[in-house]
Amino acid sequence: MNAYSGSPEPPERANLRGFPKKAVPHGTLFRIHEPKWHPAYFGSKGDKRFDPPWGFRTEYGTCYVAENQEGAFLETFGRSGQFVARHLVDEHVISELNTASPLLSADLNAPKAIQFQVAADLSGGADYTRPQQWGKLLRDNGYKAVRYSASHDPSHAEICFALFANPPGEHHEVIDYVRSLSPPPASMPISQQLQDQIQTRWGITVLDADRLPD
């Protein structure tokens, strides 16, 4: 049996006609982010899963949202494992968003995505090289977003979207900013209720730094 190697490098200018697609929900979506960034900010630093690959970082940006608050939490803090430092959570806010117009996403969770040699590493692998290459290819083929499972959710139940817009920066024509979950300009900390839900379902606990295990 051949060793598993994950998704292949996508061919340049590949025709992805027939790739599974799904509409981005027009209802409420959630994003957890640092307060210095506007909720409608599309970044391109290359340090996130579907950011533009090297050489294209001035061309477009990516904004990451989730269908549920839990998915936004996992996508932001899940890499920390069983314990998350409270100061990291306190340094972020949660925002509630709508898409400003209908958007069509490439659905990496669809069973028929395997016809294009897509594997689960695009959603959950530690190396972002392939996801960024595939994200660019999907965008080049007309998709406005990528639909995928929150990378640190073993159940694959929490759904996230990587939205594309060009150039990098704020794009209010893509995201209709509803509200940061507090009266602006102040930002409400991520609620204790959400932290409790995360602890109950996934066993992830937010702790003060002096209580974190060595």
Score class of each variant (00 low, 15 high):
Pro102Asp: 08
Leu97Lys: 13
Asp47Tyr: 13
Pro20Cys: 00
Asp90Gln: 15
Gly124Leu: 10
His38Phe: 10
Ser44Tyr: 05
Ala72Glu: 00
Pro53Lys: 01
Ser105Cys: 12
Thr76Pro: 03
Arg49Val: 05
Leu108Gln: 04
Thr62Phe: 05
Gly78Ser: 05
Asp90Tyr: 11
Lys144Val: 09
Gly135Arg: 07
Leu108Tyr: 04
Pro20Ile: 05
Gly142Met: 08
Leu97Ile: 11
Phe19Ala: 00
Ala113His: 07
Gly43Phe: 09
Val118Ala: 03
Phe77Arg: 05
Thr62Glu: 00
Pro111His: 08
Pro111Ala: 07
Ser123Ala: 12
Tyr128Asp: 04
Asp47Ser: 13
Trp134Lys: 08
Pro53Leu: 04
Ala119Lys: 15
Asp121Met: 09
Ala14Phe: 00
Phe30Asn: 03
Thr58Asn: 09
Lys22Gln: 11
Tyr60Lys: 01
Pro131Asp: 10
Ile114Asn: 12
Val93Pro: 01
Phe19Ile: 01
Gly135Pro: 02
Asp51Gly: 01
Arg17Gly: 08
Ser101Ala: 15
Glu75Met: 01
Ala106Gln: 11
Ala100Glu: 10
Pro20Thr: 04
Ala126Cys: 12
Gly71Trp: 03
Arg49Met: 02
Phe77Ser: 04
Asn109Trp: 11
Tyr60Ile: 03
Asn15Asp: 15
Asn68Leu: 10
Gly125Gln: 08
Asp51Ala: 04
Phe19Arg: 05
Ile94Asp: 09
Ala113Leu: 07
Leu104Val: 15
Glu12Ser: 10
Thr76Val: 00
Ala40Met: 11
Leu138Arg: 11
Gly135Ile: 06
Lys136Cys: 01
Leu97Ser: 09
Leu137Pro: 10
Asp127Ile: 14
Arg139Pro: 03
Arg49Gln: 00
